[in-house]
Amino acid sequence: MAIASLVLGILAIILSLTGAGGIFAVILGIIGIILGALGRKDPERKGMATAGLVMSIISVVLGVLLFVACAGVLGAAGVLASSGY
């Protein structure tokens, strides 16, 4: 779990920085946090799990900060309203 958390954390940071898939970075980061926190229960791999946890938290922070644009999306397509839909 510790290794999986670290891998997911790194992958999520790369995804969030490249802008290729911010929302996927958030989802991978959240899974990374869950695996990292679960991995910290194993004393032998606590260090690696903590690293994975930190990486995953950073990726979620970047993903939410840069890519969550607004609560509504169809409002942006306001033209629909005038088209009488």
Binding site: I23, V68, A69, A71, V73, L74, A77, V79, L80, Y85
Partner: peptide
């Protein structure tokens, strides 16, 4: 819930290029 309730509107907005798939992923909660 957003996609289920607004399925037809989203389809129309996507086909008319009023929104992109990326808009749909990052907004609409």
């Amino acid at each position: 819930l957003f996609v289920t309730l607004n399925f037809n509107k989203i389809q129309l907005a996507l086909s008319s290029n009023l929104i992109t798939v990326n808009d749909l992923l990052t907004s609409g909660f």
